[in-house]
Design a protein around this nucleic acid. Structure first.
Length: 120
DNA sequence: ATACTGACACGGG
DNA sequence: CCCCGTGCCAGTA
């Protein structure tokens, strides 16, 4: 059926989970890794998101995944970071400096998807 | 098997 | 409060 590059199982699981992150909320790489049963594979999560192909990126809200410090991880290429920040703000997330208040916007995997935006 | 990441935690300044 | 460097780990190419 599908042709094109095979997607690694782990990466596939990452995409599936990230897809459930509601707009206006964020998760950390570590949270995603833990939810997948690999609490130490946070870096691999970042890898998977980095390998996201363009069509798939449309379905996967990669911008809602940030690091444990609440900051946007820069991959040497600054462009994506700017875009990510813009997308987050567009969803109603207020950044404090270059940081997101995880306390306020963090979404927990397993929580009801329609739980909407955390406020205040 | 080697090298390269979009990480995380911890310690020190 | 902030920033930076170090050690560690796991998955992908």
């Amino acid at each position: 059926m599908s042709r094109g590059a095979a997607i690694a199982p782990f990466a596939r699981a990452v995409y599936a989970l990230v897809r459930r992150v509601p707009a206006g909320n964020v998760v950390t790489y570590g949270q995603v890794a833990a939810a997948l049963g690999h609490p130490r594979a946070a870096r691999a999560v970042g890898n998977a998101l980095g390998q996201l192909s363009t069509p798939r990126a449309r379905l996967v809200p990669w911008h809602r995944v940030i690091n444990a410090g609440g900051r946007i991880s820069e991959r040497g290429d600054g462009d994506r970071g700017e875009l990510q920040r813009h997308l987050l703000e567009k969803e109603g997330i207020r950044l404090r400096g270059h940081r997101v208040d995880l306390q306020r916007y963090r979404w927990e995997p397993g929580a009801r998807t329609r739980s909407t935006v955390a406020r205040r």
